[in-house]
Amino acid sequence: MRNVRRSWITLLLFALFLLEGTVLPWLTPSDWQEKALVSPHLVLVAILYTSLYTNRHLALAYGIGFGLLQDFAYYGPMIGTNSFAMGLSAYMIGLLMRRTPIRIVMSLFGIAWGVFGYECIRYGLYRLFQLTSVPFEWSLLHEMLPSLLIDLLFALAVYVPARKWLERLDDEEKESAEE
């Protein structure tokens, strides 16, 4: 039972991953991509939910895995950026919020920080390897904050089903562990 559900999560994440590179660029208006570089992170939001409601080690694995998949599929400058940034931010959010009771506000707060952390790590890595030269302030206003807003809207939209589903999965896992 446990493995079946986990593979459902994997499949869902994979579907989101495919949507992110194909459907979403068409849904976001062209202006948003030119004036403000809006890029929703559906996969990351889903992984952050996994981190909040199941366990952080699973989220770490998903973060590294799907990050690497993205790095392979859109291999431009280098491999490993998304993998590192997604894995680390998913794990850190799980670690930081492990003791707090997670209600809607707290979970959105956690997701906001997770996405922001991911963006910062990614920007830092691109800056480190001199692949971009835009100042941080510009990037913050034109890329990170608009994307964050869209991500939070998505997170809010899927909050109820995600929480129900993931918590049930977590309970079942704990039960099977006790047996």
Partner: peptide, 14 residues
Amino acid sequence: VIGTSPDPYNNTIV
């Protein structure tokens, strides 16, 4: 074109 990179710093299309 069959894919666009979702990462705005990685200007890659497939």
